[in-house]
Design a protein around this nucleic acid. Structure first.
Lengths: 199, 199
DNA sequence: GAAAAATTCTATAAATCTATAGAAAAATTG
DNA sequence: CAATTTTTCTATAGATTTATAGAATTTTTC
């Protein structure tokens, strides 16, 4: 029955995600993944054609609906600051939900051969472009400084979010919403005392 | 002769760094490292007792004098903004110098068993603390907002720098000093239009 | 230039890992 | 419940990899 198969296949992806996240792609064995899901090593190949395919699926699983959510956020007409908060919230929340798969996507995807990364690359580019156009919107709205390099800021935002995302995965006790708020605050206002800021 | 040995040992560390940076610790073989330095696989063990030891040495090589430089910067009495610029400059410049080793330290050190990481952990803690106290100094000087969480900002600064550092390693054409300047600008001033900013 | 020391090489043992084939067991269907 | 399909298991071929031992070569020393 296809439904049951797809269901267990998903647990296989999650098991692979957990193992890859902890040991890295090359450091993990198919034995580890099988053990994680309570089956024997050989049985794993009922769900994956190869270890490499498993990595690809984990990465796509972790990244796909995260980009979709970004698209929804950016489609709405909203003031810049609200949109930006939503973006960071989405990004960091994803780490608490599909934390292992996200971590694997960030840390291990380059071990995939190029031909297995085309889809991931598309998704990544799409994400960055959405972020960049949100920033440009912010400039047009007069909220964001006109002299920033949107490309640079987009990369930096992704960098900070991934860096804190990794911490959220490692440290369960870290408060998600406090982290979100602090990230937004830092990127919007910086760290210096502001000339006249009633905030 | 000990001098020649130590010299070639260094090229071994650099070869290992290059290979680990590209393929990851578990993805790289001792054969790869040997080929990189133009010797045979077995000969490598004249310079390293084990592959694991090689990883440890690469990580320490990449991280050690980077923390030392931080200590020198922080020891000087300087206004916050100058110090901060120096910190980011040091951090990112290091990626252009010992780029592979830095990358390996960041991405691969967790594959070392704990007992091989004690020194690295000390160094990392020391670095973060220096950064935190620099921020506290900034608050005392009235330059930095008093309501920031120095711990959070320190992690974020390290996150941004590592994220851009990785880009500097991947993309040789990326301008080092422009990147430094933009990072500092972002962290100090944020992205929003400021109420009254003659900058 | 012969003796000693340092460096590199060859060859290989031992361990590990991926992926496959075919049997066994479990679940589903009619 | 017998037949069929799905899922899991066992066993293993084949490839790779780390690390070592001892021989060969190169370099240094006197």
């Amino acid at each position: 029955m296809s439904k049951k198969y797809e269901q267990k296949r998903l647990t296989a992806i999650e098991a692979a995600a957990a193992v890859f996240a902890q040991k890295g792609f090359h450091g993990a064995t198919t034995q580890d993944i099988a053990t994680e899901m309570g089956i024997k090593q050989g049985s794993l190949y009922y769900y994956f054609k190869s270890k490499e395919q498993a990595l690809q699926e984990v990465c796509e699983y972790g990244f796909e609906n995260y980009v979709q959510r970004m698209e929804k956020i950016c489609a709405k007409a909203q003031p810049f600051e609200a949109k930006f908060l939503a973006i960071v919230t989405s990004h960091l929340s994803n780490y608490r939900q599909k934390n292992n798969a996200m971590k694997v996507h960030n840390d291990q995807r380059l071990y995939l051969p190029k031909e297995r990364r085309v889809h991931l690359k598309e998704l990544g580019t799409r994400y960055r472009r959405l972020l960049e156009s949100t920033l440009r919107e912010g400039i047009e709205q007069g909220a964001v400084r006109g002299d920033i390099d949107t490309h640079f800021i987009a990369y930096s935002v992704i960098g900070i979010c991934n860096s804190w995302g990794a911490n959220l995965v490692l440290d369960e006790s870290l408060d998600l919403f406090a982290t979100i708020e602090q990230c937004v605050e830092l990127i919007l206002y910086g760290t210096l005392v502001q000339p006249s800021n009633t905030n």
